[in-house]
């Protein structure tokens, strides 16, 4: 489907660095750059908008009027959809759906993927097995994988969540494994080993903090991909269940009325673009901050 950058066009994390105590400070510094600030501000505004949806639109997203596909008016700023529902309200609620997916599925994917990548620490065989598993997942085009997941567990929020989670695993897993291999060869790790420090301690104290950076940057990058996945699956008709709106599902339906009601696509399209823009800016800023250090 979309440009799923699972090859990791992100940080060349080879540079040696000290423990992760400075990580948070680095990220905060990234947010103070123009890009970072713009991204964070935009994302903040969108999250706020989504949170305020019930207050802004007390009628909810399913208030059906009599006419359909009406143009803009005082009551409906962006007009109504085919069932006479307010497009603006549905867009904001759709944003809510998208954010609820992104902010849960992407972190889940990052954590599980990282653990899979690091599983080599427990046993060589397990690590190699996981690596092959990730290779296989990576081989599947994102949309095909997503469609398969949806077909196996049925359409709905959970299916979208699972699709986003699974498609992201190789991205995080491979990154974690690469980081692990580099860190394990480093002198301080070898030294710690020689000194008899336990493996687990070496991992948590030394290795893990050093691979956090690329994982965080990748998570920001993957947010954009996750938006593409939701929308892509919606466009092939396997998205969220009606009548709940999502940005992708609205684009899918709206595309049917391009001729008669362009605003139907423009509204959710614009919000979707702002959302991807926010995460793109954030990931750029984080990436730069991490590299600079």
């Amino acid at each position: 489907m979309t440009t799923i950058d699972t090859t990791g066009g992100t940080p060349e994390s080879a540079a040696p660095r000290r423990g992760g105590d400075g990580a948070l400070r680095r990220y905060l510094a990234a947010l103070r750059t123009p890009r970072g600030a713009a991204g964070a501000g935009l994302l903040g505004a969108l999250v706020l908008l989504a949170l305020l949806a019930p207050a802004l639109f007390p009628g909810g997203y399913d208030e059906q009027g009599s006419g359909g596909l009406a143009g803009a008016s005082a009551a409906h700023w962006m007009g109504t959809d085919e069932l006479g529902r307010d497009i603006l309200a549905r867009t904001v609620y759709g944003l809510r759906t998208d954010l609820s997916l992104l902010l849960t599925a992407v972190p889940a994917s990052a954590v599980i993927g990282t653990l899979m990548g690091l599983s080599g620490v427990l046993s060589r065989w397990l690590g190699a097995g996981m690596q092959r598993l990730l290779d296989v997942i990576l081989g599947f085009p994102g949309i095909v994988l997503g469609m398969s997941v949806v077909l196996v567990i049925g359409t709905g929020w959970l299916a979208l969540f699972a699709s986003i989670l699974v498609i992201g695993l190789p991205l995080f897993g491979r990154q974690a494994r690469a980081g692990l291999q580099i860190e394990q060869e480093r002198e301080y790790v070898l030294a710690a080993r020689v000194l008899g420090v336990r493996r687990r301690t070496v991992m948590t104290r030394h290795v893990l903090p050093n691979i956090v950076d690329p994982i965080v940057v990748n998570a920001a990058v993957y947010m954009v991909v996750a938006i593409f996945i939701e929308a892509g699956l919606s466009i092939v008709g396997l998205g969220i269940q009606p009548p709940i709106p999502s940005l992708g599902a609205m684009l899918n339906t709206g595309a049917r009325y391009l001729e008669v009601h362009p605003a139907y696509v423009m509204g959710p399209g614009l919000v979707l673009l702002l959302l991807t823009l926010a995460f793109t800016l954030l990931s750029n800023a984080l990436n730069k901050a991490v590299l600079r250090k």
Binding site: D62, Q64, L83, T155, G237, P242, P243
Partner: peptide, 15 residues
């Protein structure tokens, strides 16, 4: 069915 027309009917019916 996961097709556009049944989906729209469902939305009205559900309401």
């Amino acid at each position: 069915h996961n097709l556009p027309v049944p989906r729209k009917i469902y939305e009205i019916l559900a309401r």
